[in-house]
Design a protein around this nucleic acid. Structure first.
Lengths: 215, 215
DNA sequence: ACTCGGTGTTACCTTAAGTAACACCGTACG
DNA sequence: CGTACGGTGTTACTTAAGGTAACACCGAGT
């Protein structure tokens, strides 16, 4: 019974935790990354200390929240990356998956990418920006690096190149997506093809517009 | 004298403003983006309300501060981008200029890239993240886009491609730089060459490591 | 009947943004 | 010479948010 008891309590606590996370999710969806602990507690129908008992501090709550979304997005990306198709197709499909995700839920995206506001704004407590900034980007970069290293033969420097490229490509995707989300200058597919073209070396291959060495 | 008076007052106010900005700069250098208005005022030898009279609110001060550094960095980047050399050399030199800047003053870099704290004080008032986020990145992206558009011939889609690539390349540089600054996995020159290799299409050209379609 | 672990609350502390009201000081002007 | 005025500065306050201490309730096992 000791076991069952503990199990019951655990599941109860975990269910509560999930409920709290879902409430927090709703608030973040509505208010963006600046959602206050009070607001989240109110949405969950309880008060602050309970949140703190479950998550330690605001950083903990936000980390837990971010982990859910990050895991979900990473799963989609892995699926796109592992699909049976040639390299270019996979790259385009992965880019498209990411862009579709941020297009579908921009509030969540903003929360994941700019989590700083929620924390370090007032109390200097919580959240070293340099350490926690955009963990999603880091994780995506590392995952992509691993995939590149596993599958590509880049000579003796494969390991280093793969990591640099992983983070670089993810950053390219992120920045282009962020800009695109704000301005909507073209369709998603055009953006995907343009980025893939960039990765496929069209920059180096392009001709100069006029005299001089060109860019 | 009316004129001279007014001029004197203006220059005096502007000199004061510069002094305050320099004090703020020192504090940000020391404390990172979480520098408080109190700390900045103390460093400048005055008290808060004066800062607010000069800059409106914390966002205003931070924007003024960011503009200085951003302008300076953009000047260096333009110089590297305009140097008389072939395209690959220019790209490497621009990447290296950026990386050298963030390496030399990481605190300033963090302040410029994660300025979110400066705004969302209370109320939901401050900061549409999508609008204000990382203005440096946006400005660099636009500048690079313009350079690309002016100098490269990419067919009928030049305009769009140039903008996508401008923001994408800047994002690549930024993310790779951020990661590199945290882990220091290789020398700056190795990083520069790896990124240039990526832009030069080595990803598309690489051979698969084993059977199957490869990445 | 009693303790104990878990859940909940109220009431508080601390820090930091932002502001109102007042004090000082040099200068033009009657 | 006194006085009103613009500019610089201050103290002291309000408000909002993160975070915590202390207490209250409740169900289950001895």
């Amino acid at each position: 019974m000791n076991t069952t008891q503990r199990t019951d309590q655990q599941t109860s606590a975990e269910r509560r935790r999930r409920e709290l996370l879902e409430a927090a999710d709703r608030v973040v969806l509505r208010d963006g990354p600046q959602a206050s602990m009070n607001a989240i507690a109110a949405e969950a129908g309880i008060t602050k200390p309970i949140l703190y008992r479950h998550f330690g501090d605001k950083g903990g709550l936000y980390a837990a929240l971010a982990k859910r979304h990050t895991d979900a997005l990473l799963d989609s990306l892995r699926a796109a990356l592992d699909a049976p198709a040639d390299r270019r197709e996979r790259v385009e499909s992965t880019l498209d998956t990411y862009l579709a995700a941020i297009e579908a839920r921009p509030q969540v995206y903003r929360f994941l990418m700019h989590p700083a506001e929620g924390s370090a704004a007032q109390g200097d407590q919580g959240f070293d920006v340099g350490k926690h900034s955009a963990p999603l980007l880091r994780r995506m970069g590392e995952e992509l690096a691993q995939v590149i290293e596993e599958r590509l033969d880049l000579g003796p420097d494969t390991r280093r190149l793969a990591r640099v490229w992983g983070h670089g490509i993810v950053g390219m995707m992120h920045a282009a997506g962020d800009w695109w989300l704000g301005e909507r200058p073209c369709s998603r597919q055009e953006l995907v093809r343009s980025l893939a073209d960039l990765l496929w070396g069209r920059l180096a291959a392009a001709g100069d517009r006029m005299g001089g060495p060109g860019f």
